[in-house]
C-alpha cells in the first residue's frame, strides 16, 4: 500500500498550487468542483491596472470545453461510402482486406486460414464459423475459460480468428473489447496471423462515434488495432511485425 502521507502531501501541494495562482476560477461541473474562487479575471474592466487586455489573456485559462468537432450520427445506417473508406484506410495501413457477403464468408474463412497451421479461437465464436473450419479439417485450439490456452500454445498457433466490436472507417481501425467472440487479449497477440471478421453494421464513421459506443462498457479491456504491428525506429524505415501479429486480415461482411 502507498504511504498515506505521500497521498496527502501530493494532494495538498496540488491544492496549494491552484490556490496561489487563483487559477481554479471556474468551478468544475461536479458539485463544489474546483478549489478557491478568486475574482474572475474576465470581470475586470479593460485598462484596470495590472490586468491584461482580452487578446493577451492567458489562452490556457480554464473555461467551458468547446466540442465543435465532427461526430457522426451513431444510428445512421452504414453506407457503401463508409465501407469503402474503411477498406481503403485498412489497406493503406497494410492490412489485407476481403469483402464478402454472408454467403461467401465460409469460403473466405477457409481460404484465409487453411495454410496457417493450428488456429486459436475464442470460446464464443459464432457456431457456423467454427463449423466451417472444422469441416475443412483445420486444427482448432479453443480457449475455454476453464481450460485457457497457455502462452506457449498460443505462440505455437499459426493464426487466430476473432470477431470484433467496432470498426472505424476514418482511421481504418478495428476495436476488440475482449467479449467471448473475441477472447482474452493475449489470444490476438501471440499468433502471427490475425483474421478478424467485421460485420458491415459494426463499422462507424469516426472516432467520436466509436468512443460513444465503447463507452457503454468502459471496463472491458480494449485493443484498438490499425494495421499490423510496425516500427519505424531504424532510420524511419517502416518494418511490419515487430512483436504483434505480422499479418492482419480483415473480412468485411456485407449483409
Amino acid at each position: 500500500m502507498s504511504a498515506p502521507d505521500a497521498r496527502t502531501e501530493v494532494l495538498a501541494r496540488v491544492r496549494a498550487a491552484l490556490a496561489t495562482t487563483g487559477a481554479a476560477t471556474r468551478p468544475g461541473p461536479g458539485p463544489g468542483g474546483g478549489a478557491s474562487a478568486g475574482p474572475l479575471p474576465h470581470d475586470d474592466g479593460p485598462g484596470t491596472d495590472g490586468h491584461v487586455p482580452a487578446d493577451l489573456r492567458d489562452p490556457h485559462a480554464p473555461g467551458p470545453v468547446p466540442r465543435e468537432y465532427r461526430r457522426a450520427d451513431r444510428s445512421a445506417p452504414v453506407t457503401p461510402g463508409r465501407l469503402d473508406l474503411f477498406v481503403e484506410r485498412l489497406e493503406d495501413y497494410r492490412a489485407r482486406v476481403v469483402r464478402v457477403d454472408e454467403g461467401g464468408l465460409r469460403a473466405a474463412l477457409v481460404a484465409e486460414l487453411r495454410d496457417a497451421g493450428p488456429v486459436a479461437v475464442p470460446p464464443g465464436l459464432p457456431g457456423p464459423w467454427v463449423q466451417a473450419l472444422q469441416e475443412e479439417g483445420l486444427e482448432l485450439l479453443v480457449d475455454h475459460p476453464d481450460r485457457p490456452l497457455t502462452p506457449a500454445q498460443l505462440d505455437g498457433a499459426g493464426a487466430v480468428l476473432t470477431a470484433a466490436r467496432v470498426g472505424i472507417a476514418e482511421t481504418g481501425t478495428v476495436v476488440l473489447d475482449a467479449e467471448p467472440d473475441q477472447g482474452r487479449r493475449v489470444l490476438t497477440l501471440l499468433p502471427d496471423r490475425h483474421v478478424c471478421v467485421v460485420l458491415a453494421a459494426q463499422v462507424v464513421a469516426d472516432v467520436p462515434t466509436a468512443v460513444d459506443l465503447l463507452g457503454e462498457h468502459p471496463e472491458r479491456p480494449m485493443t484498438w488495432i490499425s494495421g499490423p504491428s510496425a516500427t519505424s525506429d531504424i532510420e524511419l524505415v517502416r518494418v511490419e511485425g515487430v512483436h504483434g501479429p505480422r499479418d492482419l486480415r480483415v473480412l468485411v461482411v456485407e449483409a
Binding site: 479491456p221 485493443t223 490499425s226 494495421g227
Partner: peptide, 8 residues
Amino acid sequence: RMNPYTSM
C-alpha cells in the same frame, strides 16, 4: 491516422 495498437 491511428497508431497500430492502443491498449486500454
